[in-house]
Nucleic acid binder design. Sequence first.
DNA 1: CAATTTTTGGCAACCGGTTGACAAGGATGG
DNA 2: CCATCCTTGTCAACCGGTTGCCAAAAATTG
Lengths: 345, 345
Amino acid sequence: MTSPGAATAPTKRGRGEKSSATIYDIAKLAGVNPSTVSRALSKPGRVSAKTQKIIEDAAEQLNYQVNPFARALPTGRTQTIGLIVADITNPTFFDIIRGAETTGSARDYTLVLAESAESPETEVTAARRLLSTVDGLILASPRMDDDHIRALSADKPVVVINREIEGVPCVVPDVNKGISEAVRSLAANGHQKLAYVAGPAQSWMTGRRWEGVKAAAEWSKLSAARLESSKPTVDGGRQVAREVLESGATAVITYNDLLAIGLMQELQAGGMRVPDQISIVGFDDIFGADFTTPALTTVRSPLGECGTRAVTILLDVLQGHDAPEEAVSVETELVVRGSSGRLLT
Amino acid sequence: MTSPGAATAPTKRGRGEKSSATIYDIAKLAGVNPSTVSRALSKPGRVSAKTQKIIEDAAEQLNYQVNPFARALPTGRTQTIGLIVADITNPTFFDIIRGAETTGSARDYTLVLAESAESPETEVTAARRLLSTVDGLILASPRMDDDHIRALSADKPVVVINREIEGVPCVVPDVNKGISEAVRSLAANGHQKLAYVAGPAQSWMTGRRWEGVKAAAEWSKLSAARLESSKPTVDGGRQVAREVLESGATAVITYNDLLAIGLMQELQAGGMRVPDQISIVGFDDIFGADFTTPALTTVRSPLGECGTRAVTILLDVLQGHDAPEEAVSVETELVVRGSSGRLLT
DNA sequence: CAATTTTTGGCAACCGGTTGACAAGGATGG
DNA sequence: CCATCCTTGTCAACCGGTTGCCAAAAATTG
């Protein structure tokens, strides 16, 4: 213990006690049958307190760890949940991943991560592959169509984030609160022409957000125009800048923060002053949204909470509880920073 | 086939062909022994081309997928690699995760992710837990001590990113090139007093970077002072701003970009102009480093490549190749953006 | 104290693959 | 044409747990 100095080869493959003990070893040591060990360790109350203790001590002594595969084989339970995101690079998912990982591991579930690279086909493949090795699946902003998702969901529990699908448990930020706050704030600052920069067509959310913006604008008596972006990234934001200018809008709400940041950079590069000449409001409040100058005003979606909620629902379903009938909605809110404000002409 | 219109309940748990076929089903269909099926499917060349074909067709027809658990049980091979990062929230790891996931899934390995929340103990626990279910492990910027890592590495292949450990394969950005570029560039811009803002004490990298800075500064005849930060985040950067000012340095290199961004924000809030009055250089070139105004000059570590290389080495080792004797080093380079430049007094 | 019910532990089959040992069948060589 | 070697498929054991069924033991009851 004290001085490992004379050890032969520290890097050698462990042979001795390393290769983990089995319930058979425990059974021998405790003088009982392997099945009793199995029961003592996984069916609380099934064996007497006395034997339980003996077995637990033996297990402790042998430094026993269940072999997850041996367990999974007959039971199908893997203590593992899968998470598929469209794009690992996209910071929107960072918080979701984090929320899911944290909540999962708090309940002794391991998170398995896969990426679909924004492609519906890759997504389906990845989902199928994962599904066979996990107890349940979380799809964050899935790109595949509803039927595929329902098919997966027929096999094992599935929870969807950022999209509503009839018959599948969903966690969806309720955009309306945040959007109306945003639009009201813009209206209060004297804006009259509003533009919405949309995201990818496969994204269910982009439509949802546009509707919210349209409705809120109507309510506040603003005009709202919808512009399309090539891709929902900083680059896409830069590319849409010209169209924004041409639209004559003085306030822009974008499908996500990345677009907003790119848009702002491009407009500033062209000499526009934000927010004096144009206000920009993003969506999601991703990591880095406050790195910009001015810092980005944005409608925050509690992404971390989405991850957490999704895992919670999933694990509840796995324990036999019913999934919530309706989509679980989490609140969004406007985070006012420097990129939106009064028009100075 | 054509019209499933009259199907009873599409969402019902699949019973029929859903619950996947086994090699026994294939064997029956193909009229051979299950073990022949096993060989046909995993030992190329072991069965005759004719039977091979028959079996493959049958497998196809039954839509066969191996049961990973059944396979893992006798062999120990899981087609899975584990990745442990200190903090999922820290964007430094985003690219590593991404690189690892992409490379892994290209070679049909699934990535399992765990977080240590910056705690050495949690990290050891997570590592132990993961180790039993994966074929190999990647530790990104591990916080646990060398001996723990060697112990893990004695059990299964381990690759370390961002730290060098004798006897364990490592992928480490070679900071010297980037640092000397940075220091030279600062010197060329007339700076004479340099400060380095260090990261957490457990981080092996922070020392390494400080040494690089010290050596390069000496070489370029600059003075270099080392300042400590409370934590390697935006907030930590803000807190260290006063010390930086007091140090009298006109150029600052920080342990990472987060610190640099926080520092810059705080200095700007206090009326300092960057880079006119003070130059700031970060480290890593994380996502968002170019969101700031001015955009952050930084020493880029090719994090994505680190992830990729680590996975490659790991999979090579798993296939029986030898691990590289020495730490694999990937190049760093200075990315000059707006936050560094000539001093205007 | 015997009869009955409840606890508790053991036996053995099973989950779905893998693999060493072996024998039948085919090819080759002397 | 027979001996020999190689190819190819089969048998059976095994990986490490889980679980239904049963019987022995213990606890309860009349």
